[in-house]
């Protein structure tokens, strides 16, 4: 299922991670495969660890980095999609979105 901004993700229980001079190393204990996140990826990872909705993650990143919102949304969704594919995070829930008024 495609990830959307209304989703929240949780870090998989089989993942351990450590900050490393601005980067983060993620290790999937199930597969033994490790991954590196750069500075921005590390910031996003820490926001994900707080179980914030992806929309909030995007708005926080936008406040911290002077980048167009659509670029941030695209990059965050792509990163989270990759993290899901690698089973480093799992889609936890979808925020209830108010139905448009008729």
């Amino acid at each position: 299922m495609k990830i959307s901004l209304s989703d929240t993700v949780t870090i998989s229980s089989s993942v351990v991670f450590r900050d490393l001079s601005g980067e983060t190393v993620l290790l999937n204990l199930d597969s033994g495969i490790y991954y590196g996140l750069d500075e921005v990826g590390t910031r996003i990872w820490h926001l994900l660890a707080e179980a914030l909705p992806l929309a909030t993650v995007c708005s926080t990143i936008q406040q911290e980095y002077a980048v167009e919102p659509d670029v941030i949304e695209r990059d965050v969704l792509q990163l989270v999609g990759d993290l899901c594919d690698q089973r480093l995070v799992t889609r936890a829930s979808q925020l209830s979105v108010a139905a448009p008024e008729s």
């Binding site: 450590r18 490393l20 001079s21």
Partner: peptide, 17 residues
């Protein structure tokens, strides 16, 4: 060096566990 550092960090994570 960065690659080595990441690899050593991953090993350390396993050793810590």
């Amino acid at each position: 060096l960065a690659r080595t550092s990441r690899a050593e960090t991953a090993v350390e994570l396993l050793r810590r566990r």
